[in-house]
Design a protein around this nucleic acid. Sequence first.
DNA 1: ACCCAGGCGTTCT
DNA 2: AGAACGCATGGG
Length: 219
Amino acid sequence: MRLRLSRLLDLLERAYGSSDWWPGNSPFEIALGAILTQRTSWRNVEYAIAELEAQGLLEPEAMASADMRVLEAAIRPSGFYHQKAAYISAFANYLTTRHGGDMKQMRETETTELRRELLELHGVGPETADSILLYALGRPSFVVDAYTIRLLRRLGFREDLDYESVKRRFEVALKGDVEKFKRMHALIVIHCKERCSARPNCLGCPLSGNCPSEREYEE
DNA sequence: ACCCAGGCGTTCT
DNA sequence: AGAACGCATGGG
């Protein structure tokens, strides 16, 4: 019997507690964090955001009109800074021209439409789009990442492990509950970093007994 | 001296 | 439709 995803949430909460996990003082800042953290540790993102703040660039219009070299210099610690400067600039321009430079105004648009628009932005893929929708806008759009897929694989799931299928699976299991979406994704990241990273540490794992073969992780 | 980190886009087979 | 690769910095 494979572990049910609603039960997975209970087990993880019991083991790690539930905390508000995505930091940020504004929806715009959270959205920028979603882009800057791509393949990058959160610590380095904090350096970048602090510098953006110091430069007064945490406002959509200010960022949209900022010089690209200034942007690059500010976010350098977060890595891939040529690309990411273009990405956050594109997002700030999109927000300014399409939604009046206001994340609140962005909420007037339907979730599925917003997701389409976000995915059209250069540098915003599925995970980043869903992170913005869920954590910056509070929309019921589950965030899947490499950890999520790896965890499901280790829990014995073998089919439909592509991004959209996994996303749907969690959204159905958690019944569209935004707060559960937030906690589940956060806990999966926390759990996998601690226990279930590239090489799993199964000793004392709160999910022990739910992996079909805890000794044979070839992938 | 490696390996990893809360991806994405491009360019191949 | 997948796999491989570049992008760049900071920390263990």
